[in-house]
Simulated scan of single mutants.
Amino acid sequence: MKKRLGRFRLRDDPGQAMTEFAMGVPILLLLLVASAYFAVAFNNELTLTQATTTGAQQLSISRGDTSDPCATTVTAVTSAAPGLTAANLTYSIAFGIPTTTTPPGIAYGSPITGTGSGFSCSGDAGDLVSGHTAQVIITYPCNLTFMGINFAPSGCTLSAQTAELIQ
């Protein structure tokens, strides 16, 4: 009788492995695809950060060369971030004066805000004063909905900011 039990056990082993495989593969695929989804969001964050830095640097060296500092910044940002949808970018640009108050820092004026590739502030070229600081803040929406599950129900917004000394 023991031999018979052993034979049945050998026949059941391939089915057991197949069952474990069938149960394990969907979980592994879910983890793989979810990590790829988060990798895309992380890539967008890195791209946004680099584009914000590029835009602020271009703005800081364009004093006297531009009559529309916002359009100059938008052009530099959209060129540096071709993978991001330009219409979804929201800009906030502020010009500041270094202060010696306690604690020392930079006092920024009212930010100029706008959205998309048509953002313009043609009357603000006079705010580009050598020795002052230009701060650029850009936000971009992200989507973390995966297989009908929203991992960020209150919304997901990527944000990057850079401040550069105006030359």
Rank of each mutant, 00 (worst) to 15 (best):
M1R: 02
M1A: 08
K2W: 06
K2A: 14
K3I: 10
R4G: 05
F8V: 13
F8H: 10
R9I: 08
L10N: 13
L10M: 15
R11I: 10
R11L: 15
A17Q: 12
T19E: 12
T19W: 09
T19K: 05
A22L: 00
M23N: 04
G24K: 06
G24M: 00
G24D: 02
P26H: 00
I27W: 00
I27Y: 01
I27H: 06
L29G: 10
L30I: 12
L31T: 13
L31N: 09
L32N: 06
V33R: 08
Y37S: 10
A41G: 12
A41C: 05
L48V: 01
T49Y: 06
T49R: 09
Q50F: 14
A51F: 04
T54Y: 15
A56K: 04
A56M: 10
L59C: 03
L59N: 00
S60R: 14
S60G: 03
I61V: 10
S62R: 08
R63V: 09
R63W: 14
T66Y: 09
T66D: 03
S67G: 14
D68S: 09
D68F: 06
P69N: 05
P69W: 10
C70E: 12
C70F: 05
C70Y: 01
A71Q: 10
A71F: 04
T73R: 08
T73P: 03
V74L: 13
T75W: 11
T75F: 05
A80G: 13
A80F: 08
A81I: 02
G83W: 13
G83M: 15
T85Q: 14
T85D: 15
A86D: 06
A87N: 09
A87F: 08
N88G: 09
L89N: 12
L89P: 02
T90M: 01
S92F: 03
S92W: 01
A94P: 01
A94C: 03
F95N: 00
F95R: 02
G96V: 11
T101I: 06
P103Y: 07
I106K: 07
A107E: 13
A107K: 02
Y108M: 07
G109Q: 11
S110A: 15
P111L: 12
T115N: 11
G116M: 02
G116N: 03
S117E: 06
G118Q: 11
F119R: 12
C121R: 12
C121E: 09
C121A: 11
S122Y: 11
G123S: 07
G123I: 12
D124G: 12
D124I: 01
G126E: 10
D127Y: 13
L128Y: 01
V129S: 08
S130P: 11
S130Q: 15
T133Y: 15
T133Q: 15
T133V: 15
I137A: 12
T139H: 03
Y140F: 03
P141G: 00
T145L: 01
T145R: 01
G148H: 00
I149T: 07
N150L: 04
F151H: 10
P153S: 02
S154H: 07
S154V: 03
S154L: 06
C156E: 07
T157S: 02
S159E: 05
S159Y: 01
A160T: 00
E164S: 15
I166M: 05
Q167W: 15
